[in-house]
Design a protein around this nucleic acid. Sequence first.
DNA 1: CATGAATGAGCTTTCATTCAT
DNA 2: CATGAATGAAAGCTCATTCAT
Lengths: 194, 194, 194, 194
Amino acid sequence: MLVERILYAAQEVLIGHGYDGASTNRIAAAAGVSPGSLYQYFPNKDAIVAAVIDRYSDALAASVASTLARSLQRPAPEHVRNSVAALLDALDVHPEFLRAVIEQTPRLGTGSKLAAFEQRIGELTMAYLVMNRAQVRSDVRFDTAAWMLVRMIEHLTVRYILDRPDIDRNEFLYEITTLALNYLRIHDDPMRRA
Amino acid sequence: MLVERILYAAQEVLIGHGYDGASTNRIAAAAGVSPGSLYQYFPNKDAIVAAVIDRYSDALAASVASTLARSLQRPAPEHVRNSVAALLDALDVHPEFLRAVIEQTPRLGTGSKLAAFEQRIGELTMAYLVMNRAQVRSDVRFDTAAWMLVRMIEHLTVRYILDRPDIDRNEFLYEITTLALNYLRIHDDPMRRA
Amino acid sequence: MLVERILYAAQEVLIGHGYDGASTNRIAAAAGVSPGSLYQYFPNKDAIVAAVIDRYSDALAASVASTLARSLQRPAPEHVRNSVAALLDALDVHPEFLRAVIEQTPRLGTGSKLAAFEQRIGELTMAYLVMNRAQVRSDVRFDTAAWMLVRMIEHLTVRYILDRPDIDRNEFLYEITTLALNYLRIHDDPMRRA
Amino acid sequence: MLVERILYAAQEVLIGHGYDGASTNRIAAAAGVSPGSLYQYFPNKDAIVAAVIDRYSDALAASVASTLARSLQRPAPEHVRNSVAALLDALDVHPEFLRAVIEQTPRLGTGSKLAAFEQRIGELTMAYLVMNRAQVRSDVRFDTAAWMLVRMIEHLTVRYILDRPDIDRNEFLYEITTLALNYLRIHDDPMRRA
DNA sequence: CATGAATGAGCTTTCATTCAT
DNA sequence: CATGAATGAAAGCTCATTCAT
């Protein structure tokens, strides 16, 4: 489909030339389409970029959500570790695109699917905390904890991919799991490093 | 001084119009200065923006560094809380500018003072961990812990200011302190909420 | 066609304002076209000017070459006179543009068609000398003679048009023919003035 | 003197950066003078360039005129050869400046000393022809001949220096002398090449 | 006289967007 | 629907010139 070709081309151009280098002419050329055709499907340039990011968010969401659902019944340490690992792997599929989005692209509007995804994961986390409230220290509000955890995990994972610090994958997963679990004191036995 | 007027104007324009809307003509007009005058003091547009951010970084650094140094000898919970509070207050002086920098400004090289500031705080954190190694769990590398803590605290603080979640200041400080201390298990008695 | 309109406008602007006054905006306005349209057909301003000059060179070349070929078999005096006359008439079609090119336009690379035209005429002249070597004094190198003749004729013709000295056309043609023929001592009977 | 420093600097800048690269700021900097000071001595940029060229013309004129005067009494072939040689040497003192003037600098005004020099040489040539009218073919007007000769010699000499054709100096001098003398048929025995 | 910070018109070029075909 | 030539506002930047000191 034409929309698909445009979105793919836009993604490639964003990766290769950054937000500022992603002119509509360049995107159209990369898609093998005339500039005018872009406007059959999108009202303006930013809508194209937003759509690319939305599409990426959907892929992320799908990828992470399934793992997350599957490991919900596992012990907390395993669950957290699995979830972060899923996120890490999903983000690492297109690290260059991730970089283009995070480092080059200004935040476009607030209604993005990325924000919605963050919101949804926040709600799931809160539900999870409520369900396991017995093991969570009692002096924390669940929505507060969920807000902190979601932003913390998301950001550290993104930075881990983009900055490639001298920390290996298992160590990183162990540490972030520890960070999350100790925060709520569900921490008597976080998973050992492999 | 003219440089000062230019930087101030650039900051205002950055806040009001974002990076892309911050044209040199607009900055010059806002500064009540001719476009040509910008180039007496800066080689190009990006240098102006970089200078604005550097100036902001310097203010941040000065503000945070003094508090941080002063509370180094306090008990860990108090020290962490004080440091985060200092950061929070410093960032909250110009929240709109913070938003402009975070959401609109493409990363301007890695040589910015902001990156240097992050680096410096990371090193101080590591030194602090080494000094207090007796109270830190032994299975964590100090550089890894410092990397995680710095990014975590920085990002959560920024997001707290930008997203204004339904968490009050004291609660936020308590939670982030808990997050940091429990991570390393120096957590027997985090400060109580006021 | 649009290219034609642009080239014509550029030529007019070049005549009226010189190279430095020939701004892209001025050319666009003169062509009744938007500035952006220039860049659909030319990569930059110099390419436009070069194209105008190339177009002029082509016209010159075509005009002179045909006469030159047609009179190759005529006696030397007639041949030289015809050739110079052809050049003179060709250059005199747009004397104002000739002035703009000669007096205002910095040399645009050596790859211009004008240089190529000079080169080509030089080669033809040398061939002509070789063919008629019997009537040429033997102590001159043909390439040297060709170099001297071509520059001399070209320059005097151009100056004749631009400076409008008090010499009438026939006199000028007679003198330049004499100059060329006597130089090689094929001079027993240069044409008489009309 | 300051004017001298400015003119020297302007000449250097003209050589090194061409007409377009010769900004007033650059000239002022090269002269170790403030931009404003230029306007104490010159009404505008082009006046500076014109003055540089005038100064160069004066040097040329002085250099050539003395030789020319000194060899007036010599036999025609020697006189012509000496004069052209003097011009050639004078022009070859600063070939790079000559190139800058000829190839980069638009013609500025008509009242230049260069034009005056050309005029003066023309008059001298005419006087010389009148004096030696016995040896000049009778069907040529002296002013016409002078006009042709002056432009021809000037241009060929300049081009010889700028284009460096594969003709050695003596050969060139011999040929140009021949060209000049044969033109008027004072040519029975032009100087032999060395 | 000399300075040099300041000027501001104007330069070349880009690019998101439109619309007649 | 698709095209792509055309648009034109606006971008970053330069530089000859001025004038208060």
